[in-house]
Simulated scan of single mutants.
Amino acid sequence: MINAKTFLLIIFCLFVSACSTNSQIKSKQLNEWTVSTVAPKYYSAYIDILLITSETKQGGWRGMVTKYTKFSKNPNSWEGRERYSSGYSIQSTELPGLIYIRWHSLANKKTYNKTIKVSEDIRRKMREYHDIRCGYYDLLLPYKDNILLGLAPDGMISVFLNGTCFDNELQFKVQAVEYKVADDFVYPELSEEAQAYVDEHGVPTGIW
């Protein structure tokens, strides 16, 4: 005979197991993803507009990735893991089709804009399930669910795909075009440290 306490314990274990199974089933469909931005260290990018159109072109999202984007680890590369602090999170099983971004490059006081096409191949990579765990709590984080836009001061955009358990994977690069701002527009100032670096090294082109 099973006593009442044992019976309740069995029921509880079955309930937890069922919840865990349902959680695993749900995790096998990507239903939340982000678009993030990063700028080379010292070369601040001030985000103005971010528009995202869904893959079916039936709707979209408008969000802010925070005004000032985060920095890479050093001025001449995109190394670093500071990508999620400036992410715009979207809860949807539908993935992006187009991304429009406009930003101000404070180092050279120029404004750029570009519409970026997200290919079906990128969406396929985002939906692909990987049985992978990482981090202090060894969490199951199976998706490359973040599109990272590297915004260079010369207007070049490097489009990466990554995830909490995945490093940056460059998908392609695209050149943004310069956007004419109003004559009375005032660019925000760089920090003293960043301005000192730019004064010494200038604003290079073609290295990002």
Rank of each mutant, 00 (worst) to 15 (best):
N3S: 09
K5V: 00
F7V: 06
L8P: 00
L9Q: 13
I11W: 01
I11Y: 02
C13H: 07
C13M: 08
F15E: 06
F15W: 06
V16A: 14
S17G: 14
S17F: 06
A18Y: 04
C19M: 10
N22C: 11
S23R: 07
S23W: 05
S23F: 12
Q24F: 11
K26Q: 02
S27Y: 05
K28E: 09
Q29K: 08
Q29H: 11
L30C: 07
N31D: 15
N31S: 13
E32R: 09
E32M: 08
W33A: 08
W33V: 11
V35T: 10
T37E: 06
V38E: 09
A39I: 00
Y43E: 03
S44N: 07
S44K: 01
L50S: 04
L50W: 06
L50K: 01
L51K: 15
I52S: 05
I52Y: 01
E55A: 02
E55T: 11
T56Q: 12
G59A: 11
G60Q: 01
G60L: 00
R62Q: 08
R62V: 10
G63E: 13
M64S: 10
M64I: 07
M64R: 07
K67W: 06
Y68H: 03
T69F: 00
T69P: 05
S72F: 07
N74T: 10
W78S: 06
E79F: 12
G80N: 13
R81G: 15
R83Y: 13
Y84W: 11
S85P: 11
S86G: 10
G87D: 04
G87M: 08
S89Q: 13
S89R: 13
I90M: 07
Q91C: 03
T93N: 09
E94C: 02
P96R: 04
L98E: 10
I101C: 00
W103A: 03
W103S: 03
S105W: 05
S105H: 10
L106M: 04
A107P: 00
K110T: 07
T111F: 14
N113A: 12
K114S: 14
K114Q: 14
V118H: 01
E120P: 00
R123S: 03
M126S: 05
Y129V: 01
C134E: 02
G135L: 07
Y136F: 11
Y137F: 14
